[in-house]
Amino acid sequence: MASIDLNSDLGESFGAWRLGDDDAMLDLVSSANIACGFHAGDPTTLLRTCRAAGERTVRIGAQVGYRDLAGFGRRFLDVAPADLTADVIYQIGALDGLAQTVDSAVAYLKPHGALYNAIVHHREQARAVVAAVLAYDPTLPVLGLPGSVFLVEAEAAGLRTVAEAFADRAYTATGELVPRTEPGAVLTDPAHVADRVLRMVDRGEIVAADGTVLPVAAESVCVHGDSPSAVAMADAVRTRLVASGIGVEPFV
């Protein structure tokens, strides 16, 4: 049976500030991109999320980002490569340490927000993230946007690369994500999102914001956990996939 990984960004609450319904999302996804404290997430939240993921046999991914709590990691930072490498190692290690105390471990890495988008083209920062993974654990797969220099550099370095698609984000005609500042960049209708994910998996294509039909070959599909309709979208996606004979399984 054909299958696809379904991932979501979780563990993003901080102190008294609550974001998303992690428990509900963990019942639906197969991989959890858990924040590492730089863009979101406090230690108690991260430990709780790792424990909840482990209880459901959901794979844990380190979602590394810029040191930008105030901006939720969605602002580009011109970080020197050596500093970025150290920051990423620090984040992986912190989350991995928490995960190991609940008999789990970090199984992959996915950059967050502005860092994810920057290393689509920013080769120096892409190489810095790759260097961090090589230094910490070169067996860790990395998720990224198809065609990004990050995946090119990661593959050249011998890392396992995982192409990712987004259920709830609009695409440009060149295959990049429409910036969140633009209207229609974030999708919220569960039925529409489920339809486009099925099309991604079943037909290997996605329709861009301007109507261009783009080829897509993804091993993992992301439904963001911070959207107001996140749980409804993830549920609709999983239900549609299973009804079409497509399993939801982790890629690792």
Rank of each mutant, 00 (worst) to 15 (best):
M1A: 14
A2V: 12
I4M: 03
I4G: 00
I4Y: 01
I4T: 07
G11E: 05
G11C: 10
E12T: 08
F14I: 13
F14P: 04
G15I: 08
G15L: 09
G15Q: 08
W17V: 15
R18N: 08
G20W: 02
D22E: 04
D22L: 12
D22S: 07
L26M: 14
S30A: 09
I34S: 06
C36N: 09
F38R: 01
P43A: 08
T44N: 09
R48D: 10
T49E: 03
T49A: 11
C50Y: 06
C50N: 08
A52G: 05
R56K: 13
R56A: 08
V58W: 01
G61F: 00
Y66P: 07
R67I: 03
D68L: 07
L69E: 08
G71A: 14
G73D: 13
G73V: 08
R75M: 05
A82I: 07
A82H: 13
D83C: 03
A86N: 07
D87M: 12
V88T: 14
Y90G: 02
D96M: 10
D96L: 12
Q100A: 12
Q100H: 14
V102K: 06
V102W: 07
A105R: 15
V106S: 07
A107H: 15
P111H: 10
P111C: 09
G113Y: 07
L115W: 09
L115M: 10
L115E: 11
Y116K: 01
N117P: 08
I119V: 15
V120A: 14
V120C: 11
H121K: 11
E124S: 14
E124C: 02
A126S: 12
A135H: 12
P138S: 14
T139N: 12
G144N: 11
L145C: 10
P146C: 13
F150M: 12
E153T: 09
E153K: 07
E155P: 01
A157V: 09
G158P: 06
R160I: 11
A167D: 12
D168S: 04
Y171Q: 05
Y171S: 01
T172Q: 10
A173I: 03
E176D: 11
E176L: 13
T181A: 15
E182Q: 15
A185Q: 06
T188E: 15
R196Q: 15
R196P: 00
V201C: 05
V201E: 06
D202T: 13
G204I: 12
E205T: 12
I206N: 02
A208E: 10
A209Y: 03
G211Y: 05
E219D: 14
C222W: 05
C222H: 06
C222G: 04
H224R: 04
H224D: 07
P228S: 03
S229K: 09
S229P: 00
A230N: 06
A232M: 02
M233I: 15
M233A: 02
D235E: 14
D235C: 00
V237A: 00
R238D: 03
R238G: 06
V242S: 02
A243S: 13
A243V: 00
G247C: 01
G247W: 03
P250N: 02
